[in-house]
């Protein structure tokens, strides 16, 4: 799975993207967050408060409980602020 981080999540984690093999239980964005948080350090800091984190699976916005299915890309970021 390609995992991308943007804005302050990228800064706290210290990288913009990585490729990781997810465990079977990491089947939703919320479960991926829980798995990443266990790594501690910047991951724990970035994922302290799930309520302020948004995500996209296969480049589509989705809720944290959406099944990942066969997607090969997931992104975590704060609410968008363009324009």
């Amino acid at each position: 799975m390609r995992i991308l981080y943007f804005a302050w999540l990228r800064e706290k984690i210290g990288l913009g993207e990585e490729v990781a093999t997810l465990p079977p239980e990491a089947a939703t964005p919320r479960a991926v967050i829980a798995w990443l948080r266990q790594r501690g350090g910047g991951y724990a800091a970035a994922f302290t408060n799930e309520a302020i984190i948004r995500c996209a699976v296969a480049q589509e916005f989705c809720g944290l409980d959406t099944p990942l299915g066969n997607a090969d890309e997931i992104a975590f970021f704060p609410p968008v602020t363009g324009g």
């Binding site: 943007f6 996209a56 916005f61 970021f77 968008v80 602020t81 363009g82 324009g83």
Partner: peptide, 9 residues
């Protein structure tokens, strides 16, 4: 665009 496009400032 302001709420749907993935930009961050």
């Amino acid at each position: 665009l302001k709420t749907a496009a993935p930009f961050w400032k």
